[in-house]
Design a protein around this nucleic acid. Sequence first.
DNA 1: TCTGGGGTCCTAGGACCC
DNA 2: TCTGGGGTCCTAGGACCC
Length: 307
Amino acid sequence: MSRQVMGRLAQLSPLVEQVSIDEAFADISDLHKPAEDIALQLQREVDDELHLPCSIGIASNKLVAKIATETGKKAAHGPEYPRAICVVDYGREAEFLAPLPADMLWGVGKKTGVALAELGMHTIGDIARWPEADLVRRFGQNGHDLSLHARGVDDRPLVPEHEAKSISQETTFGRDESDDVVIHATLKSLSAQVGRTLRSEKLAGKTVKLKLRWPDFTTLTRQVTLPSHTDQESEIYETALRLLRQIRLPGRAVRLIGVGVSNLGEPVHQMELWGASREKQRKVQSLLDELQDKYGDNVISRGCEKE
DNA sequence: TCTGGGGTCCTAGGACCC
DNA sequence: TCTGGGGTCCTAGGACCC
C-alpha cells in the first residue's frame, strides 16, 4: 500500500522524498495550480482508489509543511480518521508556528522539551523570541537550528534518494535470556539477516556494531572497524561474537541483542591471498540467498564453519 | 504501562599523523 | 629537551524521529 501511495505522489511531481513508510514530501512549486486543489485531488484519489485516509500540509518548506499536517490532524475531530488539509501561506510561517507547543518542533523531544520549559519557553513563539546566541550557548548546533526553525526558516532541500548509512537488526527476548547457546544462535541469525540485506542492496560495511541491553535496561554498544568491507554473514557474526565476549561473561542475562553494520560502501570481491576460498564462500552465499528467497528462511542455514 | 525496531545526527575523547 | 596546533579517524553514548 505504501508503494501505491508513493506511486500517486510520483505522478504528481518528479521531486518526492519518502520519509517513512507512510509519509513523504513532494515539491509542487512548479505546478501552476492552487495548492489546495492539488491537495484535495490527491487526497480524493488516495481515498477512492486505495481506500486510505490521508492528511496533507502545504507550506514553503519541509518543517512548516510537516507541522501543518500535524496541526490539521489535531484540529480534525469525529470518529473518522482525519482527512485534513492545512495550508500555510508564504510569509506567514512564523505567525502560524508561534502559538503551537514547543515540542511540535522537529528536534524537540522529551529532554529538550523539559530544558526549554525550565527556561520558560513553552510555545514555538517563545523560542523564536529567545536570543539565538543564548540558545547556541546552551544547546550547541541544535540551538542554532531551534532558533531558525522556530521562526519558520528551514532551507533543507528535498532529497529524493536517501543512501542508507547503516543496516542493523535487533531483537528483544520474550524473557531475559542467559543461555549462551540461544544468545549466540540469535546473534548468528541477526548477522545472517544483516548480511542478506547488504547483499540485496549491493552494499558492504566496514564497521560492525554490537548492541546489548541488560535486564535493568542499561544499553551498551561496542563497535569495531574491519580492514575491509564485508557483506558476509560469517564475518559479521564472528566480529560481533568477539565484541560480545568482551563485555559479557557466559551465563549473564540479556534482554536485547542487536548487530549492525555501518561505514557502507561497495562490496569488493578482490582476489587476495585467500582469494580462492573467499570466492568460493561468496558463491555458496549467493546460492543460499537464492534458496531462501524461494523457499523461506528456514529451508537451509549454515552450520559451524570452524572450531 | 516496566518500556519494540530501525534508523539519523551530534558530541566528546583518544590515537595518530604532519 | 621540550613543545604547538590542526586534521582525520575511531569509539561510545545520547537525543531524537517514525
